[in-house]
């Protein structure tokens, strides 16, 4: 009893200064179901990635002559290095999976419709940012797959013309592109992520959770946002446990020091659809990824009118399913086919 009173006093003192009760706003019961917690679980995954990434950053040397060996040192000489690296790698995969599921949930329920179009655009920006994190992280390994990814980076920068300037080695010829991509991974992208994430959470707070597709809650018990965060923390714990288990059972390896001028690897699963398109259409196939992003941004404009239910959104759902099937088919095609030289 006395302990409870003491905690209440502590809470009151902290709340008076940090105004935390603003986070105790009411949320509907369905907001605490798994499909509606996926966004917050993605945030939990990002926290894991930031913490493990800060650790790895202490031992990583972002220079072409030292990067590969520094990863080996992390794996073999740094105490806990192999496990922390494994958690970082596996948490990155899991976070992207959860983010894609979140995107699918928002798309299927039509949560991008008025008044949430801006937040959808911010979410697409967050997807792009996470993909950029994944790509730069792939390059930082500095093995054969990394240098081939970097070669694609340079080739696509050429394709982008004046817009690709920052991504080309010529932009800052005395600094290796690997070093600049490392800077992007630990500094530029986290900044972009922070800004977009703040905007995303702000807009969620302003507009509230999007209504469910199946039913409108009426008499269900109501919860606060703190419950939502608690759920996300629970799923975050599970994600950390899974990443740890995967890091122990399937520790990520490290390839040989890379050599340029050859293409014999395939990208991580996330980029396989783009790789498949590149195999079919050449380097220009990478524009397909740009087109998909532009389509995602345009979704709220393309899917206006009609009812809020499944039937009212038949066209949008059909197009979404077609894009998903095409991406999966291209990914499977790329996975099954042998590596192809796209640049050399």
């Amino acid at each position: 009893m006395r302990s409870s009173f003491r905690w209440q006093r502590v809470w009151a003192a902290v709340d008076a200064r940090l105004v935390l009760h603003n986070f105790l706003y009411e949320v509907p019961a369905y907001a605490n179901t798994l499909p509606y917690v996926l966004g917050a679980v993605t945030l939990a995954g990002l926290v894991i990635l930031v913490v493990t990434g800060v650790f790895l950053g202490q031992f990583y040397a972002p220079d072409p002559s030292a990067a590969n060996v520094s990863v080996r040192i992390i794996m073999t000489q740094v105490i806990g290095g192999e496990v922390i690296r494994g958690i970082h790698v596996w948490a990155a995969h899991l976070t992207v999976v959860v983010l894609l599921l979140h995107l699918m949930r928002v798309y299927v329920t039509g949560a991008y419709r008025f008044p949430r179009e801006a937040n959808w655009a911010v979410g697409v920006g967050l997807l792009g940012t996470l993909l950029a994190f994944f790509f730069t992280g792939t390059v930082l390994r500095w093995d054969q797959g990394a240098i081939e990814a970097l070669a694609h980076n340079v080739a696509f920068a050429r394709l982008l013309g004046v817009f690709g300037g920052w991504f080309s080695p010529a932009f800052s010829s005395h600094v290796p592109l690997l070093t600049r991509l490392y800077m992007a991974h630990v500094s530029l992208l986290p900044l972009v992520l922070f800004i977009l994430l703040s905007a995303h959470l702000y807009l969620v707070r302003q507009h509230g959770f999007s209504p469910p597709l199946a039913h409108l809650e009426t008499t269900q018990a109501r919860y606060t946002f703190a419950h939502h965060l608690k759920r996300a923390a629970g799923y975050g714990c599970i994600m950390l446990g899974l990443a740890l288990a995967l890091a122990v059972i399937f520790p990520p390896g490290q390839g040989p020091a890379p050599v340029s001028g050859i293409e014999v690897t395939k990208p991580p699963w996330l980029f396989l659809p783009a790789y498949g398109l590149e195999t079919l259409l050449g380097l220009a196939g990478l524009w397909g990824a740009v087109v998909v992003f532009l389509w995602l941004l345009a979704v709220p404009v393309l899917d206006r009118g009609g009812g809020p239910g499944w039937m009212g959104r038949r066209r949008a759902l059909t197009v979404g399913a077609a894009v998903a099937v095409a991406a999966i088919a291209l990914g499977v095609y790329a996975w099954l086919s042998s590596p192809v030289a796209h640049l050399h």
Binding site: A233, G234, Y235
Partner: peptide, 10 residues
């Protein structure tokens, strides 16, 4: 343990 604690929190 982490998975169990996560499950309990949920």
């Amino acid at each position: 343990l982490l998975v169990t604690v996560g499950g309990l929190i949920i």
